[in-house]
Design a protein around this nucleic acid. Structure first.
Lengths: 207, 207
DNA sequence: AGGTAATATGAGGGTACGCTCATATAATTA
DNA sequence: TAATTATATGAGCGTACCCTCATATTACCT
């Protein structure tokens, strides 16, 4: 499932067996982090769920933090790539189609996403990393909007991306909630709200 | 600040000094839970921040879970009371004013809210408690909408309350984010989105 | 004043956690 | 084959956590 390797880890896997192990460990880690959150997740459970001894886990990931960061970076890279590709195609796409694509894209890879979101929240303010997950998202969405309509100022695009991302987040949390009566209706209405918002704002900026 | 006492705690305070202590402990607990989340918060730090020895904390709260639940219930009761009062007045209020009041109300008591939201997420599925915080909110918002427009069906009011609460949540998370350029603009636009949504949906239901 | 209930206090028990490391095995290279 | 590098394994170390409890102090009541 996850085929990427860590960047800042202690020892990267060199052989096929190592890479396979790392993939299994990352998959198990994603599940456990998604279920329990960063703090409550334990390295013991992650190793157990990957059917690996605890030593193997630490062979490839020097700490719980490094493991979480690897997971987060992998997910961020996947999404960033998709967003960049959408930016290239954005010029010729209608607004409602754009919203549809955007929503689908940001809700894709639900497993990785379910792990990444708690991790992004828990490990937000570590060290000097100013390039938060959320900032990357905003930059990309703003770029897509400006690709779609070049007359947009940078400030306007930034503001719109903030609103749009909040709407996506709302849709995501509704999608994740099981057994909610009225969920379909709510999802539809939130999408049409997004389309409405984009239409209004884009037409205002084209004056 | 917090003047309520716990309901299911081991020993409720009987004397003035005890009540004062409990208030200080709850305040410190709210801060620590807000900063660190449920899991990462430690009883030691909560006691230290209230300038109380660890034994005093356990005198009044038998466990970390009980402490969190007390905090959550206190906040839920405060908000529920406010919402109920708004329901009584809802009939004569214009839509944009209603949205304004609702948003302000749900963002009030930022300290308690900052603690309650992580706790609600962390302790969502404990025991048989089906009356989640979120369900209570939805019921109240739906009741307010129906008070404002009695022709609303129960289902429609429920769906609208779901959408509305997501919008409020989005606004809240923007409010909490410091130093965000474009925040004011984003807040204004999300509010007008909520008004637009309510107008459309309510007029559709009055046919 | 004496008696009783409420509160104060902090040393420490038990536990689970993150993580280390010495040692064993497998795969690759020379 | 021999040497070397990569990976496997799990007992156990140190620590920090949640919580207990014996004992001391304070406030209230009669």
């Amino acid at each position: 499932m996850s085929s990427e390797v860590e960047s800042l880890g202690a020892r990267a896997p060199k052989r096929a067996r190592g890479k396979q192990r790392v993939a299994e460990l990352l998959e198990a880690a994603a599940d456990v982090f998604a279920e329990r959150g960063f703090e409550a997740a334990t390295m013991t459970e992650i190793a157990a769920r990957a059917d690996a001894p605890i030593g193997s886990l630490y062979q490839f990931f020097p700490s719980k933090e490094a493991l979480a960061d690897t997971l987060l970076e992998n997910y961020a890279r996947l999404i960033a790539d998709d967003l960049q590709e959408l930016e290239r195609r954005a010029a010729g796409i209608e607004i409602d189609a754009l919203v549809e694509i955007l929503f689908k894209l940001l809700r894709s890879r639900p497993r990785e996403r379910a792990a990444a979101l708690p991790l992004a929240a828990a490990r937000m303010d570590e060290g000097t990393r100013r390039s938060t997950f959320r900032h990357m998202m905003r930059r990309h969405i703003a770029a897509i909007l400006r690709a779609r309509q070049p007359s947009l100022t940078a400030d306007a695009a930034r503001d719109m991306s903030i609103v749009l991302l909040q709407l996506v987040k709302a849709v995501s949390s509704l999608t994740d909630e099981e057994g909610l009566a009225g969920r379909q209706t709510a999802l539809r209405e939130m999408k049409s709200l997004a389309v409405h918002y984009l239409r209004i704002s884009l037409s205002a900026s084209s004056r």
